[in-house]
Design a protein around this nucleic acid. Structure first.
Lengths: 186, 186
DNA sequence: TTCTGATGTAAGTAATTACTTACTTACGAG
DNA sequence: CTCGTAAGTAAGTAATTACTTACATCAGAA
């Protein structure tokens, strides 16, 4: 692992624990086992370092990598909902960074986030139109509901309340959700 | 309005625009039209001031004030979902504080947030069990789905993407959600 | 009038912060 | 061996920050 990568990784950790303003460059350098001077030789400012963290640890590749599972509409939803939840969890720290700076660094974040939303809605649209055979309008709305529910559930449980849900709890939520959304359609 | 209230209000505004760490006590005092010395005479530290802001501008009273509307299950859900969404929007700035500081000031925030969740789930439970006549388990799960969906939708649209949805867009989302959740039950 | 309480001004302190400069060390390639 | 590159150390700068001290002002109650 190069020095730059080590710095990026500890910046990622520090930012996600303490937010952008709560983290000092000294702290990042120290936890990377590197001098502060080296940090500023490799990144021209703290803000640039933050931008590079956003780019390098984005959740978008994870979302994009989700494949549409086989099976009935309801089962497809269950499978995909599970994967979305687990992707979110894997990048939990990254999400915390996004959240922590949602008020202070809006330009950078809005870009990253709306990209995330578009990617997710694209993915879900495929499932809904193919697996559930809905009208485009209905489909569009249900995609939003499904995405918002999984996302809101994750943020509420794992980020706000600091829990780490078991697979059973996740499945219970997502399967009930899938059933409601698919409306009993096979 | 007392001096203390003026300070609390501008602290609320500053924190919600720039987060806790991004806001200086000087700035708060200045926008309150008060000297910094006065601020520290009335609040013993910045952190204590933050706590008082959390308490004074909490969203909980708004949620508690929501009454269960008359009508069928689906209509009751629509009415209550609308009100929740609008309460969230009214306190949008407060929510931004919570979000932006959830990583750095966890102790203070977890308390406020879990109280919020409990209040909301209590309120919804009443609607679900009375208006929809579900089993307790089903009811519990659907409460979670409904709450998470409205919450996730709000955060995604209004906070992350900075939009201000029209009543029509809100209604479209919430009525589709209510229909899915109530599963066609009258 | 006098006293009190709330507020202001001026000035400052000690700590922290992002970021820099100048110089040194270690090491692998040629 | 030499030389360039990546890294470190030491020190410091200019700005900012939370928070304090000492003293002045002023309006209203007694």
């Amino acid at each position: 692992m190069t020095t730059k990568e080590r710095i990026l990784e500890s910046a990622y950790n520090c930012f996600s624990r303490k937010g952008y303003f709560g983290t000092t460059t000294r702290e990042i350098a120290h936890t990377a086992g590197v001098s502060e001077v080296t940090l500023f030789r490799l990144f021209k400012s703290k803000k640039e370092l933050f931008r590079e963290v956003l780019i390098n640890f984005s959740i978008i590749p994870d979302i994009r990598a989700i494949s549409v599972p086989e099976g009935s509409g309801e089962l497809a939803l269950l499978g995909i909902g599970r994967k979305i939840y687990l992707s979110l969890r894997e990048k939990k720290e990254f999400l915390k960074i996004l959240l922590s700076e949602v008020t202070g660094l809006t330009e950078e974040i809005e870009e990253v986030y709306s990209h995330f939303v578009r990617t997710l809605e694209e993915l879900l649209s495929n499932v809904f139109s193919s697996a559930l055979s809905l009208s485009p309008d209905e489909s569009r709305m249900k995609v939003k509901i499904f995405g918002a529910a999984v996302f809101g559930f994750f943020i509420s449980e794992e980020i706000f309340q600091g829990r780490e849900l078991s697979q059973r709890e996740i499945d219970e939520f997502i399967s009930t959700l899938s059933r409601s959304i698919s409306g009993g359609k096979p």
